[in-house]
Design a protein around this nucleic acid. Sequence first.
DNA 1: TATGAATGAGTGTTCATTCAT
DNA 2: AATGAATGAACACTCATTCAT
Lengths: 201, 201, 201, 201
Amino acid sequence: MEGKSSRQEQALVRREQLVDTALALFSKQGYDATSIKQIAAAEGVAVGLLYHYFPSKSAVMRAIWERHSFLPELRALLLVEHNETAERVLRDVAERFSAMLAHKEALFRLMVRESQSNPEVADCLHTIVEEGIKALGAYLERRVHLGELRPHDTALTARTLLGTVLTTHLARLPIRPWAELVAQLLHGISRHSDHVRPGQD
Amino acid sequence: MEGKSSRQEQALVRREQLVDTALALFSKQGYDATSIKQIAAAEGVAVGLLYHYFPSKSAVMRAIWERHSFLPELRALLLVEHNETAERVLRDVAERFSAMLAHKEALFRLMVRESQSNPEVADCLHTIVEEGIKALGAYLERRVHLGELRPHDTALTARTLLGTVLTTHLARLPIRPWAELVAQLLHGISRHSDHVRPGQD
Amino acid sequence: MEGKSSRQEQALVRREQLVDTALALFSKQGYDATSIKQIAAAEGVAVGLLYHYFPSKSAVMRAIWERHSFLPELRALLLVEHNETAERVLRDVAERFSAMLAHKEALFRLMVRESQSNPEVADCLHTIVEEGIKALGAYLERRVHLGELRPHDTALTARTLLGTVLTTHLARLPIRPWAELVAQLLHGISRHSDHVRPGQD
Amino acid sequence: MEGKSSRQEQALVRREQLVDTALALFSKQGYDATSIKQIAAAEGVAVGLLYHYFPSKSAVMRAIWERHSFLPELRALLLVEHNETAERVLRDVAERFSAMLAHKEALFRLMVRESQSNPEVADCLHTIVEEGIKALGAYLERRVHLGELRPHDTALTARTLLGTVLTTHLARLPIRPWAELVAQLLHGISRHSDHVRPGQD
DNA sequence: TATGAATGAGTGTTCATTCAT
DNA sequence: AATGAATGAACACTCATTCAT
C-alpha cells in the first residue's frame, strides 16, 4: 500500500502547497496583481521551481480549479432525501451551502472576481449556479406534487434561497440562522397569506 | 455670458470621455489587467494626455467612483411611499433596482470585482448594501405596525429581495418579472401557510 | 530716459526672474533633475510661457551663464594696485574672492556640478581659474622684482591662495579670516626667510 | 574545497562589473543623466538583470560608495610617522593624496558632483575632508610642540595643503611636483622665520 | 528536485517640446 | 504675453518565462 516513494510523495505535497499558496494570494490580490515571484517567495522556494511543477502562471490557476472545484461538494450538498419535509431540506441546504462558502471563502472570492473577465471561470460559475438551482428546483417540484407545497416557480425559489446565502457571504454581512429565511420563504410575511394570491394562476 | 470657453468645455468633455472609456475597460478586464496605454488607445489620444487630466492610474479609478456613484440613485430608489401596499412597493423596488443594475452593469461589475482586493471599494459596497437593507427594512417595519405584515425579521426580508435581484444580475441569470418573487416573499410557498409558523414567536 | 514701454520692461523683468528661478533650482537639484514644469510652477506661470522667452531648456542654462558670468567680477577683483604690499593685496583678493563665492554660491555650485559633464561649462571654469592664476601670478612676479618677495613659483602661490578659498566654500568649511592664510603663505615666500630653502634654486 | 561554485563567482564578478560600469557612466554624465538602459547596454546585458542584482537605481549608487569608499585609503594615507620631519611627511601626504585622486578620478568627480544635491553624499565628503584636516593638523601640532614648527593655525595649514591638491585635480590643472608647495608652506610656519609675523599672537 | 542568472517586452509615469487659442 | 491641451519618446522598474547548472 506504500506504493509511492517519499520523493514522489514530497513532490505531490509541494505541488499542493504551491496551489494553496497561489489560491490565497490570488484571492486576496487578484490573479493579475499576484506575481510568480510572490508565490515562490511565500512558499520559500526559487522562481524556477514553480515552472518545474506548472508550465505557466495560468496553469497554476487551472490547477486551483481542478483541486478545489466547487461542483462535487455542491452536488453532494444537494443530494437531499426527497421524502424529508421541505422545511428540513431547505434549512439543511442553506446551512451547508453557507458553511461551504465560509470554508472555501478564498476560492469563492477568486471565482467571483475572475469570472468577470475570464470566460472559462464565468462558465464554471454559471454551471454551478444553474445546477444548484435545477437540483433544488427538482426537489421542490416533488414537494409540490406531494401536496406539501403550492404550485409555484420552483426555480425562482431555489434562486432566492441560494442567492440570499451567497449575497450574505459576498457582502460579508452577519450570518444569521438560516431557519428564519426558510420560514419566511415557506410561509411568507403577509398577515393574510392564506388567501389566493393575486397575479398567480 | 455662458462663462466657459469652448476650450475649457472641450477639456471637460474629454475628461469625462476618458473616465467612461476607463470604466468600460476596467469593468471588462479588471483594473490591474488594463493598461494606461489601452485606455489612451481606445480614446485615440497619446498616453501623456491621461497624465494631464489625472495624476495617476488610481486617480482615474477614483474619478470613476466620483462620477458614477451608486449611492444617490439607490437612495432615490428607496424613497418609497410608506402608505402604498407592500406588494406594490416591493415590486417597484425590485424592478427599479434590477433596472439600475442593468443600466450600470459595467460599474457594478467593476465594484464587485475590485471590492475583493481594494478595501476602499469594499467599504463603499458595504455601505450601499447596508443602507439599502436598512431603508427597505424600515419600510417593512412600518407595514408590520400597520397590520399589513406579520411581525418578522424585516432586515432579512430586505436582504432576500435585494440579494436575489443582485445575484441574478451577477450570475447573468435570465431576468424574470419580479412580481413573482414579491408574491413568494409575501405569501410563501407552503400550501398551509396560514397557520402559525413553527420556530417563530 | 523712460525709453522702454512698461510692457517691454515687464517682459525683461519676467525673463530675468525666470533665469534666477532656474538658477536656484538647477543649483539645488542639478540641471537634469530639474524639469521645465518645476521652473514654471516656481514662477507661477504656465509651461508654454517659458518657450516664449527661451527656445529650449538648454537655452535657459545658457541665459544663466550670460547673465551671471563669473569672469567680469573676477577680473575686477584681480585688478589690484601693483604698488600695494603683497600682504594687503593677497588679503584683499582672498577676502573679495571669498565674498564673491558666498554671494554667487548657487551659480558657483551649478558650475562645479555641470562642468563635470558639460564641456562648455568645463572650459568656462577652466578659463576663469587660469585667468585668476595668471593675473595674481603676474602681480606676485612684480613683487619679486621689487624685492619684496623671494623668487618663487608664483603661479603655484596663486593657485594655493585661490584654491584654498575655493575648497573652503565648496566643502562648506567654516570661513576663517583670510589674513591668517596670507600670513602663512607670505612668510614662506619672503626674502627674509631664515635660510636658503632646500629643493629650490 | 574553495567553497564557491563558478556560478556564484561569476555572479559576484558580474555585480562588480556592473558597479564599475555604472561608476564610469555616472562620473561622466552624472547620476540623473545616466539611464539604467545605458548601464545595461554598456555591460552588454538586459535591463532586467540590473534589477536582479540591485533593487533600484539608487542602490547601484550606494553599491558604488560601498565598494569604492575613499575613507580607508585616505586614513591609511594619513597614518604618518610622527617622528619624521614635516617636510618629508607633508610631501608624502601631498603626493599620495594626489596619486589617490588621480587613481580614483571617476569616483572623486562623481562625489563632488552629486554632493551638490545628494545630502548623504555631501555628508560623506564633509566627513572625509574634516577627518583629513584633523589628522594632518594633529601631526602638525606635534611638530610645533617638538619645536620644529612655529605655533600656528595647524588646521588651516592642513586645509591649504589638501585643498590645493584637490583644486588642482578638480580643475584639471597640470600636476606639479608637490615638494615645491610643501617648501612654500613650510617656510612660512617654521620657527626660524625671520621675524614675528604681524597679525598673529 | 531545485536554483537563480538572464531575458526582453511590458508597466505606470515624466519629460521637453509644440501649437491652437 | 500667456495659456494649457496634446504629443510621443524616454524613464525606472516589474513581469512571466527560459535554461544552464
